[in-house]
Amino acid sequence: MRVSQKLEYACRAMTQLAKHADGKTITRLDEIAKREAISANFLVQILNDLRRSGLVTSKRGKFGGYLLSGKAEDISLYDIVLSVEPNLLEDTTTSEGESGDAVRKTWSQISKSLTKSLAETKLSSLVVTDDGPMFYI
């Protein structure tokens, strides 16, 4: 499956915000950009899309940045897709020709299955903590 760079970066940025989500910790744009190796100019556009859809909140000023608007376990990948790539799940098949209806129905079923999986996959499942065992030599 080919995922756009914009969608991939949106998921990575949201994962960074989820790692620090306590409802009040603000993460600066340049911190997210550095941690995820994303251009800050491109990232600000993505975060603006996520802000407009209500998934993130932004604060301006010297101590400004971004934070999740809700809990990571309440935000799905479907929410992120709708925020940055709303046309991704759009059905563009037709019923033309002898096989058109069968092909359209098949792709429609696949689309419904993908939508269901995206809705069931929560942002919290992407967060990997560094709480694993630490070994000292």
Rank of each mutant, 00 (worst) to 15 (best):
L43Y: 11
V44Q: 00
V44A: 03
Q45L: 15
I46M: 13
L47D: 11
N48T: 13
N48Y: 06
D49S: 14
L50H: 10
L50N: 06
L50V: 11
R51A: 06
R52A: 12
R52P: 05
S53F: 09
S53M: 10
G54C: 14
G54T: 15
G54W: 15
L55F: 05
L55C: 01
L55S: 04
V56S: 08
V56K: 14
T57F: 07
T57A: 12
S58C: 07
K59C: 04
G61S: 08
G61I: 01
G61K: 08
G61N: 00
K62S: 06
F63Y: 10
F63T: 11
G64L: 01
G64D: 03
G64Q: 06
G65M: 01
Y66P: 09
L67W: 01
L67K: 14
G70V: 08
G70K: 10
G70N: 11
K71N: 12
K71P: 09
A72R: 01
A72K: 00
A72D: 02
A72W: 03
E73N: 00
D74Y: 02
I75P: 01
S76E: 08
S76P: 03
L77A: 02
L77G: 02
L77K: 05
Y78F: 15
Y78A: 06
Y78K: 10
Y78T: 02
D79Q: 00
V81S: 07
L82C: 15
L82N: 15
L82T: 02
L82H: 07
